[in-house]
Design a protein around this nucleic acid. Structure first.
Length: 492
RNA sequence: GCCCCCAUCGUCUAGUGGACUAGGACGCAGCCCUUUCAAGGCUACGACCGGGGUUCGAAUCCCCGUGGGGGCACCA
């Protein structure tokens, strides 16, 4: 396959979410797979809807995911500028070409007249409200004069009024639309900026985009777009319309309300939230890759493996419901795939953020003990904070073993203390045999004896393996925590 | 209202006319392992939206319904 040039073209009007991330991922995979380039282009032609900070969020999200573009407003590239507001002249030039070739025309109708026309049509209950074509009839030389005189106008595409337009989507095949259902869409707005329809087609051509991956919301204007491209006489890219993401219930698409609910549940659809929630780029990437892509082999993939296996033919056209449990699964799986050093380094910030004093040497020993217990990175706090705390304060009730009372539990704790303090070394291999021997001799269960010890030493009922943990905590701390636990039990 | 798209287990999907007793993954249930919680292993449950065609034969092709989604802007 020839090197593909793909592009992700978000508008800086809101937050960067799952859907955008998936499009970017597929763009990236296709470019990497074929040895081509992945381009980021900012579609900022609607200054009314511009949201400050959203450009930064887009870049940050892409960087964090590890799918950085080859060409972009910040990285530059041979086809720039990559911000549409900086490309006005290019669009004007192309709009002029279309007008000259008779594929477009200036329209002087005011918003008020348009609104009136719309209302009339609605009153007549027409099937499709559209531009009434008043300015289509203005002779070109007269229109030119009005433009020169400074009259405000837009440029509209002259849509064929009969016949059909056949547009080919790579996933859906030919989509045939009767032209009478289409409209004379505005190409150039009266503020001098292009609409998406003109800008995207011009830029995709100028930037030599070979494959356009975009959301299925563009399907309805797809015929317009191919008409524009054909009017210019350009080669068409391969068009791929990706389906939308549905809310977890599968009933309806993701909405503002739904994304708020996700956040309440401890999840998010926004990429820049993922890090704080303890998700890894690997987990998120793997998760979104599988929505809309039928991978026949192993579901678990690294970015490299995705590149190897990627193929636009195995993309799917149907909408996919978001499943956060699956995100958890992939996140945990990728955590378990990491090297000890890598995982430790990624865990550290969460301990530091919690105000704990973390020694790298200790963390390196702790990590193997908790890795298969982690679903998200920040779970490390729940499992391992006691390693880095001076003292632990167990809930006294938790110190009482199942089926026993405080007195019996205190007795077991004392006996354990006796055994442990009699040993000069607290290494796992040294401690376990005598403790097991005690369990066997005492008539209590391992669960009871070790349970008391666990709560005493870690302060929690659920913890990493006990003996390995004690070894890391160290003899002195283990013994002092045990003494404290005995005090608590005696005081009950 | 009109136009367009989509339709396999609860969810993500494999399947491109016979290899389908419809495969995998998540979740769910059980068992094994086990000092807690996990991880891991094994097993179970679980689907071709409905109706018509085409064909010797349909999850696969066609039509009609139904359901879901998108669009009908000087927004993208």
């Amino acid at each position: 396959m020839k090197p593909a040039r793909t592009r992700m073209a978000p508008s800086p009007t809101g937050r960067f979410h799952l859907g955008s991330a998936r499009t970017a991922l597929f763009d990236y995979l296709l470019a990497r797979k074929t040895g081509g380039q992945f381009i980021l282009r900012l579609e900022d032609t609607d200054q009314k809807r511009f949201v400050p900070g959203s450009e930064e969020e887009i870049m940050q999200s892409l960087d964090w995911l590890g799918i950085t573009p080859d060409e972009s407003p910040v990285h530059g590239g041979p086809y720039g500028p990559y911000r549409q507001t900086e490309r006005r002249e290019i669009y004007h030039r192309h709009a002029r070409i279309l007008v000259e070739k008779g594929y477009a025309y200036p329209c002087f109708c005011t918003p008020e007249r348009l609104e009136k026309s719309r209302q009339q049509q609605q009153a007549q209950k027409v099937d499709r409200v559209k531009y009434d074509g008043l300015c289509r009839a203005i002779p070109p030389d007269l229109a030119a004069k009005r433009i020169v005189s400074g009259e405000k106008h837009v440029i509209r595409f002259k849509m064929p009024q009969d016949g059909v337009t056949t547009a080919r989507d790579h996933l859906r095949g030919d989509i045939v639309t009767e032209n009478k259902h289409l409209d004379d869409y505005v190409l150039l707005k009266s503020d001098g900026l292009p609409t998406y329809h003109l800008a995207a087609m011009v830029d995709d051509h100028e930037m030599q985009i070979t494959h356009v991956l975009r959301g299925s919301e563009w399907l309805s204007t797809f015929p317009l777009h191919v008409n524009i491209v054909r009017a210019f006489g350009w080669d068409e890219p391969v068009w791929i319309h990706l389906s939308v993401f549905l809310k977890p219930s599968g009933k309806g698409k993701m909405s503002k309300r739904e994304s708020a609910q996700a956040i309440k549940d401890g999840y998010s659809i926004f990429i820049t939230d993922m890090k704080d929630l303890g998700y890894t780029p690997e987990g998120v990437l793997n998760w979104i890759a599988l929505m809309g892509w039928g991978v026949p082999e192993d579901d678990v993939m690294t970015l490299e493996q995705m590149i190897e296996r990627f193929n636009i033919d195995s993309l799917t056209p149907s909408p996919a419901a978001i499943n956060f449990q699956k995100l958890d699964h992939f996140n945990g799986t990728h955590i378990r795939l990491m090297t000890n050093e890598d995982l430790s380094a990624r865990l550290k910030p969460y301990f530091v953020a919690a105000g704990l004093n973390v020694r790298d040497e200790t963390l390196l020993k702790v990590t193997p003990l908790i890795r298969e217990r982690l679903v998200t990175l920040d779970d490390c706090l729940a499992f391992a904070r006691f390693f880095f705390e001076e003292v632990v304060k167990p809930n006294p009730e938790d110190l009482v073993a199942n089926g026993l009372d405080a007195k019996q539990s205190a007795m077991i704790a004392r006996k354990s203390y006796e055994i442990l303090s009699g040993l000069s070394d607290i290494a796992h291999a040294v401690v376990e045999p005598p403790m097991r021997a005690y369990v066997d001799a005492s008539g209590y269960t391992a669960g009871q004896v070790f349970g008391i010890l666990r709560v005493a030493v870690t302060g929690q009922k659920v913890s990493p393996p006990l003996f390995e943990s004690m070894e890391i905590i160290g003899r002195e701390k283990v013994l002092s925590r045990l003494r404290y636990a005995i005090e608590l039990l005696d005081g009950m």
